[in-house]
Design a binder for these strands. Structure first.
Lengths: 214, 214
DNA sequence: TAGCTTTTGAGAGTTACTGTCAGAAGACAG
DNA sequence: CTGTCTTCTGACAGTAACTCTCAAAAGCTA
C-alpha cells in the first residue's frame, strides 16, 4: 500500500490535515514530515535550477531519503507539483447548493468556492504552482489531464441532479466550458502575480462568454 | 536539420502532400516512405498489443529501421499519434471570414470548417487516433497541450481583427470555451464510432452552452 | 521484551530519449 | 560515369524516470 492513504489522499490534502490532526502515531507523523521534506527540497531545487534540470536523485539527496523512497511518496516527478484536492471540496460545495438554482450557476459556484478557500490558505504555493504550470510543458499536460478528471466528476454530479446522462453531450459541453473559462481566469490571475481580485476576473471571464458584442 | 521540413510540416501534412507532389527527388520519396512505414508499423503494433506495451525498439524493428532513425522521424513516441495540422488550416479558414461577422461565429466556423475537410479525407484515421486519445493518458495529455497552442494562435488571430489584446482575459476566455466545446463534441462523436452527424452534434454542443434551461 | 507490520535503502533492470561518429547512399558538376 | 558534397543511417554509449525485489531498520502491540 502506498503512503498517503487511506482512502485517497494527495499532497495538499495531507498537508492541510497535518495542521488539524494532532493525535497521530509517530509513524504517521514521520510520513507527513518526509513528504513535506521531499516537497520542500524539490521546490527549492526547482526554483534554483528549473524543473527539468532537477533530477529525482538530487531531490532525494536534498531531502535525505533514498530515490526509492521518493517514488513511494510521489508516483511521478510531476505529482510533486500537481495537486488534485479540489475535487472532494467541489463535490461538497456543489451538494450544498439549492436544487432549483440555475445549473450553470451551481457549477460555477461549486468551482470558485473551494478555490477561494484554498487561495486564502495557500496563496503563495498556488502561485508558485501556476508558475511551474506555465513554464513546464510536462506539468501543463498533466494538469490538463487532471482537469479532465474533474470534469467527469462534475458531470456525474450534474447527472444526479438533472437526470440527464452524465456522458451526454449537453452536460459535458457545459462542464467543459465552465472549467475552461475558470481555469483561464485563474491562469490569468497567476500570470499577473496574483495582484488582481480573482473574484472579479472570474466575473469578467464568464461575462465575456455570453457577451454578444464579440 | 530534421526530416519533414521545410518550413514546418508534420505527419499528416506530409502524407497529404505525398499524394499530390509526384515530382520529388528520390531522397524525399524515400523519407516519405520511411515515415509511412514507421507509422504503419506502430499503429499495427498498437492495435495488437496496446500503446504502452509497444516499445520504440519494436516499432523500429517492425519498420526495419534502427531505433535512432525512429527518433529522427518522430521526436517522441507520442508524436506518432498526435497531428497538429489543423492550425494552418484554421488560420486560412478564419481569415476568409467576413470581418463583420460575430466573433464567436467566426471562431466556430474557423474551427469546424477544416475539421470537415480532414474528416472527409481521413475519417478512419481520425477515429483511430481519437480512440488512442481516449485510452492512453500520455496521449490525451499531449493532445490537450497541443490544443492549448491552438488556442494561443486563435487568440492572436482574434486580436488582429478586434484590436483587443491577445493575452487579455476576454479573448482567451472566448477561445478556451469554443475550443473546449468543439473538442468535447468531436470526442463524443468518436466515442460513438463516428456514426452520428458531427455537424449537428456541434450545433447541439454550442446550443447547450447558451441554453438557460440548464 | 518479543513478535508483527510497515517503512526504508540498496541495487538491478527497463524504457524513452540524446548525442556522437563513421560509413552508406542519393544529388550534382564536370 | 566519376569524384565530390550533402544528407541519411545505424551502432554505440549515456542519462533520467521509473519498476521490482529483498533484506534490514523502525514503529507498533501485547
Amino acid at each position: 500500500m502506498t503512503p498517503g492513504n487511506p482512502p485517497t489522499r494527495t499532497a495538499a490534502g495531507a498537508e492541510l490535515e497535518e495542521r488539524l490532526a494532532a493525535p497521530l502515531g509517530l509513524r504517521e507523523r514521520k510520513k507527513l514530515k518526509t513528504r513535506r521534506a521531499i516537497r520542500a527540497a524539490a521546490f527549492g531545487l526547482f526554483s534554483e535550477q528549473g524543473y527539468e534540470a532537477t533530477t529525482v536523485d538530487q531531490i532525494a539527496a536534498a531531502a535525505e531519503v533514498s530515490p526509492s523512497t521518493f517514488f513511494r511518496y510521489f508516483p511521478t516527478k510531476e505529482d510533486l507539483v500537481i495537486s488534485d484536492d479540489y475535487d472532494p471540496l467541489m463535490e461538497v460545495s456543489f451538494r450544498s447548493r439549492p436544487a432549483d438554482e440555475p445549473l450553470i450557476e451551481s457549477v460555477r459556484q461549486a468551482m470558485t468556492d473551494p478555490l477561494r478557500q484554498v487561495l486564502a490558505a495557500e496563496r503563495e504555493e498556488v502561485l508558485l504552482r501556476m508558475q511551474l504550470y506555465r513554464a513546464v510543458p510536462a506539468i501543463r499536460a498533466r494538469a490538463l489531464a487532471e482537469m479532465q478528471r474533474t470534469g467527469e466528476m462534475m458531470c456525474r454530479l450534474l447527472a444526479e441532479r438533472t437526470g440527464l446522462p452524465a456522458d451526454g453531450l449537453e452536460l459535458r459541453t457545459l462542464v467543459a466550458a465552465v472549467l475552461a473559462v475558470s481555469s483561464e481566469a485563474v491562469q490569468y490571475w497567476a500570470e499577473r502575480g496574483g495582484h488582481d481580485d480573482l473574484e472579479s476576473l472570474l466575473n469578467t471571464a464568464f461575462r465575456s462568454l455570453g457577451s454578444p458584442g464579440l
